[in-house]
């Protein structure tokens, strides 16, 4: 099962001929992911070759999806063009668009989100590491890796991970794998103030997913996304959960690397988020080293 994607999901990469997109397309192919198409306007008809894989490149997402059956896009397009790239995926009727790009202007994202209203496509990101549903092979080979996460740190299993931060996701996943706990799906929702998918959206999916038996949510200062998730979890979530919030020591009014990580007007503090999560029965990791152990505590309760 897992959520959103599985080992049979066919993906295309927008921006496959750029250095960053190409490197991560290669890593996804190495991981055994069904990466079936690339899109770079003006380079249609060329082929992306890697270790015997021959991935056709198309000028448009519509054509790539129609010819290869891809239903999910991974976007590595520079910030100024990323809004257009997302809407191209939406226009082609994809199930999922995963936008890795960091640095998209907020005004562009507001317009993109408004233009997506009523569409069939779900957006994950932007400014995110993407998502991984681990496979059953060695070092979780054979799974679906979309984005920039290191594939080998994963292990197929029953824990769902959702996070606003890339490296903190890897930290949590590695802690789980080191303790023998595998993952159903690990989703990075991104560090921007306006994104496509929230903690709550993903937690609801994990709650419905028969494979997922426990959930780690990783948040950070800024916005009220974590509080909203906690409010729902308190009433509805059937599965044990652990959580960590980064940024307790961040000074108010300063943007901490991620565009969305800012405490403004007294809103979005780590303390408020932790309190909401504790109130919802989510086991709080006291430190980022404690994330997997906190989940183990929650599962033993």
């Amino acid at each position: 099962m897992a959520i959103l994607v599985n080992e049979n999901t066919r993906i295309l990469v927008q921006g496959i001929t750029g250095a960053f997109g190409a490197k991560h397309a290669q890593l996804s192919l190495d991981y055994g992911t069904k990466l079936v198409a690339g899109v770079t306007p003006g380079k249609g008809g060329q082929t992306f070759e890697h270790h015997g894989h021959k991935v056709p490149i198309f000028d448009t997402v519509e054509e790539a999806a129609r010819q290869t059956g891809a239903t999910v896009s991974c976007i590595f397009v520079p910030p100024a063009f990323a809004g257009d790239a997302i809407l191209e995926g939406v226009g082609a009727g994809l199930d999922l668009a995963v936008c890795i790009t960091e640095g998209i202007p907020v005004m562009d994202m507001m317009r993109v989100r408004a233009a997506m209203t009523g569409s069939h496509t779900r957006l994950i990101g932007p400014n995110c590491p993407g998502l991984v549903t681990p496979g059953t092979g060695k070092d979780s080979h054979g799974g679906c890796r979309i984005g920039i996460s290191p594939g080998y740190i994963h292990k197929r299993g029953n824990i769902g991970v959702v996070s606003r931060s890339g490296t903190l996701t890897y930290e949590a996943v590695w802690q789980l794998t080191s303790r023998g706990l595998g993952q159903s799906t690990c989703v990075g929702i991104g560090g921007d103030p306006i994104n496509g998918t929230t903690h709550l959206d993903i937690i609801k999916m994990f709650n419905e997913d028969p494979q997922t038996e426990g959930i780690i949510m990783i948040g950070e200062i800024g916005g009220t996304n974590e509080e909203q998730a906690a409010e729902w979890v308190k009433q509805n979530c059937q599965k044990p959960m652990a959580g960590f919030i980064a940024g307790a020591t961040a000074p108010p009014g300063r943007r901490m690397g991620h565009a969305g990580a800012i405490v403004s007007g007294g809103k979005g503090t780590a303390a408020a988020k932790q309190a909401a999560m504790e109130d919802a029965g989510i086991e709080i990791a006291a430190t980022p080293s404690d994330m997997a152990d906190a989940l183990i505590r929650a599962m033993k309760r």
């Binding site: 490296t167 560090g191 940024g247 901490m256 780590a270 430190t287």
Partner: peptide, 27 residues
């Protein structure tokens, strides 16, 4: 000195947790 914004924030937090005081955020 840390790679990644979330991990950098979390590193400041864990320094404070163990009784130190962070001098900076650096991703």
């Amino acid at each position: 000195l840390v790679n990644g914004a979330g991990l950098a924030m979390a590193t400041m937090d864990i320094i404070q947790h163990f009784g130190g005081t962070p001098a900076n955020f650096l991703d």
